[in-house]
């Protein structure tokens, strides 16, 4: 069995997580992982700082944490999983986009339905009354 590597097929698709070690792309090789680690550590520290601070307007803190989390997931996808915008990665990006769509439908839909059901429910003590 021949060991087929990426470099044998410069025009081929790229497996997710695979990288062109010889290439000069940013985000490949040790330097890529170091940049990814630096950005991830930075975003994590900002996240933990924002969560405990009183410098930021209180109600905005959860939104800030969510934005930082999405940014950090992007950093992980690009620098650790090597999901790029290049043509050799189109299939990976399309699969990811579908996954993200399902995640949003599932979480958003659940929260939307459950809050509305919650508002339409009788208060708990009245339900208890009816069951007597």
């Amino acid at each position: 069995m021949s060991d087929v590597t990426m470099d044998d097929h410069p025009k081929g698709d790229r497996a997710p997580g695979d990288e062109h070690i010889e290439s000069e792309e940013p985000g490949e090789g040790y330097a890529g992982y170091l940049v990814g680690l630096g950005l991830a550590v930075l975003l994590t520290m900002v996240s933990f700082f924002v969560a405990g601070t009183s410098l930021v307007w209180g109600p905005s803190i959860p939104i800030a944490i969510a934005v930082l989390a999405v940014a950090q997931m992007g950093v992980h996808l690009v620098f650790f999983l090597h999901i790029t915008s290049g043509p050799d990665s189109t299939n990976n990006v399309m699969a990811l986009a579908f996954g993200v769509l399902i995640v949003f439908l599932l979480i958003g839909g659940s929260l939307y339905i459950m809050t509305h059901m919650d508002q339409n429910m009788l208060p708990m003590d009245q339900i208890m009354q009816m069951q007597r």
Partner: peptide, 24 residues
């Protein structure tokens, strides 16, 4: 494609389905 790309892509699909499970 080479088997490496096909295997990697298949595992990527599995990981996305795992993430969908976590989203539930």
């Amino acid at each position: 494609e080479s088997k490496r790309v096909i295997v990697g892509y298949g595992f990527w699909i599995f990981l996305l389905s795992d993430i969908v499970m976590f989203s539930a």
